[in-house]
Design a protein around this nucleic acid. Structure first.
Lengths: 226, 226
DNA sequence: ACTCTTTTGACATGGTCATGACAATCGCGG
DNA sequence: CCGCGATTGTCATGACCATGTCAAAAGAGT
């Protein structure tokens, strides 16, 4: 079981991240301030630490530096609100392994976590190619064909598609999609999701009005079937 | 699969190098101090070792000398912060195969790694000549022609082109280009990339406003197609 | 100092996405 | 089996954001 320490003072974000990680079967520990985080990290060995920069008590910067100073080399993924913040920190040779600027979708967060963990050891590689029915998708090349015919997806459509594929056979709610693909701090209406479904169906389904792959789970969400 | 051992105590640099190498499909092992590095090198046979001179525990100099002393002839590429440092070391007949002074771009690092490996025998030769559509490029001679007509690319344009060619068919993000071609310690705005795309298109595309080879992947990056 | 290259900034343009209206469909209870 | 409310399908619209493009500033090399 992979253990993750999430350090984040914004409860909403903390909860969101935790839920997403638990959904992916990570074991999650939480800290809401720098001092607690340090204590926890020194006591327990986590596989990775997700660390917000802006924290009460001690900043994430402090936490990071003190951990490294005490010889702790747990991989750290920094969350910051602005690009510039991290640039500054990077200049200070903080010793973090990666960083993300808010807002971010959970998909990206998970991808980065997996990338970091993969560096340290063994973990499954990223999804590059996938096919179902008459459709072929190559995420690396951002190319899609249906029955051999190339078709165009937008960046976000690729992301939604990827999410569906990674959760093949599961019912995913609109909220889940919004959180995971769009990110916590953006609040489009659920109508937006429907529209992406619509446009995806038009593109990948043979008969868009009788979808076979992206099916509706009424009053719950959608389900992708290979 | 080519294996590389990177020995570097600055995490940011270590991470940068690791990512670049992994992006180029090398298998990367990491060490952050001289002692660990020695152990790893004696236990496993790597195709090449990237070795920072300034290390905690044992200096890169020590590591290099001890390896050679014990009969290990794995190619070594030295990284040093200053020209003088290496000059000193070179006088000591250290037995390294090449060296670079920081800061350096990833392109240069990769070029040197490939050069060293090629000497040893195993690795595809460098990209010397390449053609697509009406365009011929000779990287060694730094010459380009389109429909037989010679045209001039700047040094950086050559590098961007080379990166595109080496990643033909893949979508590459602006960030990726900045990291890989410009090097991880420079932070030009992303506008810079666009302008290089613009100027490359003007030069190599028959109809620059309808690019066939350097295509746009909206909100993601660009893609080179042969 | 001059020239060529690279970077930056400004503006125009086009694509993408979010929203709301309305129609169609579903599920549930009668 | 029918009807009603709730949910989803569908489309048109406008705002916004990413990119195309150019010009000028900054930097590098000679």
């Amino acid at each position: 079981m992979t253990t993750v320490l999430v350090v984040e003072d914004d409860r909403a974000v903390l909860r969101g991240i935790t839920e997403s990680l638990e959904l992916e079967h990570f074991e999650v520990a939480q800290a809401e301030d720098g001092i607690t985080a340090l204590e926890m990290a020194q006591e327990t060995r986590y596989d990775i630490i997700i660390l917000d920069l802006l924290l009460p008590g001690k900043t994430g910067e402090d936490v990071c530096r003190e951990l490294r100073g005490s010889g702790n080399d747990t991989p750290i993924l920094i969350l910051s609100n602005k690009q510039e913040e991290f640039d500054k920190v990077l200049g200070l040779e903080l010793g973090a392994d990666d960083y993300m600027t808010k807002p971010f979708g959970t998909r990206e967060l998970l991808a980065r976590i997996r990338a970091i963990l993969r560096r340290g050891g063994a973990l499954t590689p990223d999804l590059v190619e996938y096919s179902f029915g008459e459709v072929w998708i190559n995420f690396k090349k951002q190319e899609v064909t249906r029955s051999g015919e190339p078709l165009k997806l937008t960046a976000k459509e690729f992301e939604v598609m990827r999410y569906f594929i990674e959760h093949e056979g599961e019912v995913v709610s609109r909220k889940q999609l919004l959180d995971e693909v769009w990110g916590y701090e953006t609040f489009p209406t659920t109508r937006t999701v429907d529209n992406f479904i619509l446009s995806l169906r038009k593109k990948i389904e043979g008969d868009p009005s009788n979808p076979r792959h992206i099916t509706t789970a009424h009053s719950v969400g959608y389900k992708f079937i290979k």
